[in-house]
């Protein structure tokens, strides 16, 4: 069985870096609120997507377009609806699939763009045969990106019970919440990844420097403080450090990154079709190094060669300087 390596691209140059480093597929999004990485200076115009897809296809690489936020209610003019425009642009550009989460966007795609292959975003948080079966039956979804809350054993059982492909995250930032349902960013800033495409929108982030270290604030809330020599993480509330019960700790989740390189063989055995690397917000240096490393991991698994030292190779690229196998081993339950 051949595992498909699905790699992130926040810019056209990152797309080229991913293709050249050995991606089988690249995922990206438009420069607006239709995708869950809607950060300043990031993402693709319609023209850049056309060019990116042409480049990828010349190299035999597929391009998946993430239109994975939830459609805003009350858009009177359908012709100006960003989600409908995004779907039409993706199809026009020759996207190999679109990654969707919202029922309305899925319905519109299935009805008006029947030629588009539909993947279900992790933002839909579909983790049961019933939920996945519904999306497959109602909209013809062909692949589900699995929420990062399942163990390898649970994925194996799930794959036996469903008729669509599964894609599992193997590297990058971890979301400890029920994805697509998290309201922490919205609570603090009024904007969320689900509706606006941004978790911890940067206009609300502030780093205050002082001799004792750096204080990270989100919308005025102090969420962490790093000593000058302490490794830092992203300014998200879920990975903030808080005082509760008289103790200071990372209450929800430590600032760590997922690295499931050591579990790739087991994920393949569990019936996973594709391995996903997180990080559309990262630079092409990160994209190239992580894709190269996971290409080597996949080849080592498929040919029975010695395992690749992925943790060592990628240790300095990760959030907080630490790596975890996350829920795949579920040591925390």
């Amino acid at each position: 069985m051949t595992l498909e390596l699905v790699c992130p691209a926040g810019t056209p140059s990152a797309l080229r870096a991913a293709v050249e480093a050995g991606a089988d597929a690249v995922y990206c999004g438009f420069r607006d609120e239709t995708n869950a990485r809607n950060f300043p200076g990031l993402n693709f115009s319609a023209e850049e997507l056309h060019e990116g897809i042409r480049f990828a296809h010349r190299h035999g690489v597929r391009v998946l377009v993430a239109i994975n936020t939830f459609m805003r209610a009350g858009i009177a003019d359908a012709a100006a609806d960003p989600w409908k425009i995004a779907l039409a642009c993706a199809e026009d550009a020759g996207a190999d699939a679109v990654i969707l989460a919202d029922l309305a966007v899925l319905d519109h795609a299935a009805t008006h763009h029947p030629g588009l292959r539909l993947h279900l975003s992790v933002q839909a948080a579909a983790a049961t045969p019933e939920a996945i079966g519904f999306y497959a039956e109602a909209f013809g979804v062909k692949r589900v990106v699995l929420p990062r809350v399942l163990s390898v054993e649970e994925i194996a059982v799930l794959n036996q019970a469903i008729a669509v492909e599964t894609e599992a995250f193997v590297f990058g930032g971890l979301c400890p919440m029920t994805e697509g349902r998290c309201a922490l960013s919205s609570y603090a800033t009024g904007r969320s990844p689900n509706l606006d495409g941004v978790c911890s929108p940067p206009e609300h982030v502030d780093y205050a420097q002082a001799p004792e270290g750096t204080t990270a604030r989100l919308a005025g809330f102090a969420i962490d403080r790093f000593a000058p020599t302490q490794l830092a993480g992203y300014p998200t509330l879920c990975k903030g450090s808080f005082v509760a019960g008289g103790k200071t700790s990372h209450l929800f989740e430590d600032p760590v990154s997922l690295n499931a390189a050591g579990l790739v063989a087991r994920l393949a055995k569990a019936g996973v079709t594709a391995l996903k690397i997180e990080g559309r917000q990262r630079g092409k240096g990160y994209v190239a190094e992580v894709v190269r490393t996971f290409r080597a991991v996949v080849e080592a698994v498929e040919t029975g060669r010695d395992p690749v030292e992925a943790e060592r190779r990628l240790s300095s690229l990760v959030e907080g300087g630490r790596q975890t196998s996350g829920a795949y081993r579920k040591q925390w339950r």
């Binding site: 929108p201 780093y207 630079g283």
Partner: peptide
């Protein structure tokens, strides 16, 4: 990679993050 430089404290930033 800019994020890696930030995580590893090789650079420090302040002001308008956006």
């Amino acid at each position: 990679d800019g994020d890696a430089l930030f995580f590893n404290r090789a650079i420090t930033v302040s002001g308008r993050t956006d």
